[in-house]
Amino acid sequence: MRRTLPLVITMVTGAIMVFRDLFNIPEVAEIVNRYLVMSYTLSTQTAVAIGIMNLFKIHFNRISRKRSDWQFSILLIGSACMMLIMGFLFDLGHNAPVYNWWYQILPVQLGNATFALICFYIASAAYRAFRMRSIEATCLLLSGCLVMLGGVSIGNAMWSGFPEIKVFIMNNLNTAAVRGVTLGITLGSLAQYARNLFGIERGYMAE
């Protein structure tokens, strides 16, 4: 039962969704959307609650055992609780101006700062990886540099041909490569989903 039931649920719901997408029957689509798709929403949000409980459990543990940097755990729990309480307290929930203000000054700015790290990491990764060790590496290096120059105003100021070269590389070479990889990924993901649907692969069941 423990192994069969999840398989049966996967197969049946998968078959229903495939049927719903293949045949344009509005009544069927409405029933599927109202019950099956909404149930996915409910299960996802239940999972969020479980995840938050796990997070709190780990950090309460760290605080109670005074593990290294336990003060940051207080900060995490405190800020999470503060945002949660504000969301419940105010009429408009997460759209309330106060909530929005806190959101703008903390998570938004922190997210921006973390994203900005990518700039520095690209520099160090490119410096380390872009070496002309072989013909392929040289092609990678040259195309990377040309696209970098063509995409910015300084490249355009140096020579008006750089943006055109960039457009050529992006429209022809890049598009061809992306399409090839995307094709393989799409067909591969079809097989992956089919394996899960038919119960051949049961990774999600911890088997």
């Binding site: 990491y121 690209i122 990764a125 490119a126 380390r128 990886a129 872009f130 992306v178 990889v181 995307t182 393989g184 990924i185 067909l187 591969g188 993901s189 097989a191 992956q192 692969e201 990774g203």
Partner: peptide, 27 residues
């Protein structure tokens, strides 16, 4: 990864990188 946009980053920064559908072949 099966996200084509991230494959170049992994190739540049990681020791081993599986491209696209190679991860589906894993199991």
């Amino acid at each position: 990864t099966d996200a084509p946009a991230q494959i170049p980053f992994f190739i540049a920064a990681c020791d081993y990188c599986m491209i696209g559908e190679e991860i589906y072949a894993a199991s």
